[in-house]
């Protein structure tokens, strides 16, 4: 098992991050934070009736994945998918419109916040049942292998998912068949309202991969550069026929389980320590300190992100409700099957 060292020490040529990569990562982090907080605000204000699962704390993990994945790589996410979707380049306007359940949403308003997708950028699907996306990602991996294509498939899930059968079946199958996959476990330390030590017999999630003869590593999710470099290595291995890798990204959920839930059960010291490392502002300081971007360039990114998010929410709120006739479309390819029942 490989445990990643500090990001800033590892600079192998193939995983090195360019200024463009670093800028994109910062931009993605800000976009995730801003969109997520805007959505939660709308839910709490009662203007948005959506079971929205916040992604605060995951910004660095998601942004790292965004620069590590190539356009042709495919991603399957879960119900806490906003960060994954934005990192993969899915349309912000379409995503927000879907969260609002409007006609211009990714699924014409029929999927909702838990079922975001954008096939045009390889964000294939996201599922609302814990662990259920992992075997589907394995199928995409099998297809890539059968196609002889140099593309990798990433399955993103939380730490709570490592308790369910679909995960174990898929880990075994992917390793057995040497599928071109990366299993990305965003370990935010909480399975809904239960802390990891109370549901996992072993909290070293990366160690479990050894039982499936799968290479694995754990990386600090608050260190986005290390995370991106490790993901690049794992994705490169998958694309080159080296098989799957399990990557545990250790992070922390900076909010409750759902958009409107109480989170007084989370220990205040843990939460405070994690909040100190809040990904976007921390990364902003680092970029400034290291001279990667100056204040003016960072402020420009901030300004663009705010404008983009405001535009997306305005677009979603102006988007029409789905037509009543949409209820019975997309059940089957042939609508007559339904009308004849």
């Amino acid at each position: 098992m490989v445990h990643a060292q500090s990001a800033l020490e590892a600079d192998a040529a193939e995983t090195a991050l360019s200024t463009a990569d670093l800028t994109q990562m910062y931009r993605t982090m800000r976009l995730i934070t801003s969109t997520g907080e805007h959505a939660v605000g709308e839910v709490k204000a009662g203007r948005l009736k959506s079971a929205f699962y916040p992604v605060r704390g995951l910004e660095g993990a998601c942004a790292a994945m965004g620069v590590a994945m190539l356009t042709e790589d495919q991603l399957v996410s879960n119900y806490r998918s906003l960060g994954d979707a934005l990192a993969k380049g899915a349309s912000l306007r379409s995503i927000v419109a879907e969260i609002y359940g409007r006609a211009d949403g990714t699924s014409k308003g029929k999927g909702g916040a838990m079922h975001i997708h954008d096939q045009s950028v390889g964000f294939v699907t996201s599922t609302g049942v814990v662990g259920s996306g992992i075997p589907i990602a394995a199928g995409l991996g099998l297809a890539a292998q059968l196609d002889g294509a140099a593309r990798a498939v990433v399955s993103v899930f939380g730490d709570g998912t490592t308790s369910i059968g679909a995960y174990h079946e898929s880990m075994n199958l992917a390793s057995l068949w040497n599928l071109p996959m990366v299993f990305v476990c965003q370990n935010n330390q909480w399975a809904e309202h239960t802390p990891i030590a109370e549901y996992a017999a072993s909290t070293d999630l990366a160690a479990r991969a050894e039982a499936y003869a799968m290479p694995s590593l754990a990386v600090d999710g608050f260190d986005p550069i290390a995370t991106a470099q490790q993901l690049r290595t794992a994705l490169g291995r998958a694309r080159n026929g080296g098989g799957p890798t399990f990557v545990e990204i250790k992070t922390y959920r900076l909010t409750g389980h759902s958009g409107s839930s109480d989170y007084s059960y989370m220990p205040t010291d843990e939460l405070a320590a994690a909040t100190e490392r809040d990904p976007a502002p921390t990364f902003r300081r680092w970029l400034l300190d290291e001279g990667v971007l100056d204040e003016q360039a960072l402020a420009e990114v901030d300004k663009e992100v705010i404008a983009e998010v405001e535009d997306a929410f305005a677009f979603a709120q102006d988007s029409p409700q789905p037509a009543a006739s949409e209820r019975y479309t997309d059940v089957f390819a042939d609508e007559k099957v339904v009308s004849a029942l």
Binding site: A138, L140, L142, A143, A144
Partner: peptide, 9 residues
Amino acid sequence: GTAIGAALA
């Protein structure tokens, strides 16, 4: 699940 994923591709 694998069948579904392969179908998606």
